[in-house]
């Protein structure tokens, strides 16, 4: 595979912004509590790394996000295959799906709190709920769009349901399922942090809120930058996996 080289021209704007903010904060006489100098952000970030708060927060957020993503993906996959294969079931469930799906995950925070209280379980539940839908919908359409000729081939070979799904339907739908999974993975991080910011005293979201409430903009921005890096890394890993899996 050809390695794409990093294009340094893309770094011009971020570097310029960082430099301007740095100069602005350093030359201004005002003491800010809403912006921080990049050096201060770096210092606060380093401090958070050194005392372990960043690692702990990251593990909490990623743990909930990935745990919820795993549950949501498995459920979405199973339901998507069932709905895609069996039209009567799909029609019977369509209204329920369309009624529940548009509810924003944050709106369910109070419900999850009533069920589980604060902690990992409510966050995992909400991430699972939010990531279920993209996986379900992409799996369902992928399964429905399997080349009919291939289903005929599997009938002619006398494959049972399980063999048909495992050897024909899932591989044929895999590229679509993966698109749904990538959307779900990005969503998982968003939902986890949202839940932490709005209610759950855990992870990077809660860290962000604490930094804000204690007027430490440096730490707050450090968390935000770190979130950006996690999101970028997650996407890069999935893109790479996609290239490996579906290379022509």
């Amino acid at each position: 595979m050809k390695r794409r080289r990093f294009d340094w021209r893309g770094a011009v704007l971020p570097v310029a912004v960082i430099a301007i903010v740095q100069i602005y904060v350093m030359t201004s006489r005002v003491k800010f509590d809403n912006i921080a100098a990049p050096t201060a952000i770096a210092a606060a970030g380093w401090q958070a790394v050194a005392d372990g708060t960043l690692l702990q927060a990251t593990l909490q957020t990623l743990g909930s996000a990935l745990g919820g993503l795993a549950i949501g993906t498995i459920l979405g996959l199973v339901l998507g295959v069932l709905f895609g294969l069996w039209q009567p079931l799909n029609r019977a469930m369509l209204l329920s799906v369309e009624a529940v799906r548009p509810i924003p995950s944050v709106a369910l925070v109070p419900v999850a709190l009533l069920i589980f209280g604060f902690g990992y379980r409510m966050e995992i539940l909400l991430v699972a709920h939010g990531t279920l839908w993209p996986v379900l919908i992409f799996t369902r359409s992928g399964v429905r769009n399997v080349q009919p000729r291939l289903l005929e081939v599997s009938r002619l070979l006398g494959f049972g349901l399980w063999t048909r799904v495992w050897k024909i339907v899932l591989p044929a739908a895999l590229s679509q399922i993966f698109v749904g999974f990538r959307i779900a993975a990005a969503l998982a991080l968003v939902i986890a942090v949202t839940v932490e910011i709005s209610a759950n005293p855990l992870g990077i979201g809660a860290g962000l809120m604490t930094a804000e409430q204690t007027l430490r903009p440096g730490l707050m921005y450090a968390f935000i930058v770190w979130l950006g890096l996690i999101g970028w890394a997650l996407n890069a890993v999935l893109l790479q996996a996609q290239r490996r899996l579906f290379a022509p």
């Binding site: 000729r149 024909i168 044929a172």
Partner: peptide, 8 residues
């Protein structure tokens, strides 16, 4: 081309 499994 439709009857073959393109991923195999």
């Amino acid at each position: 081309s439709n009857a073959l499994l393109p991923w195999r």
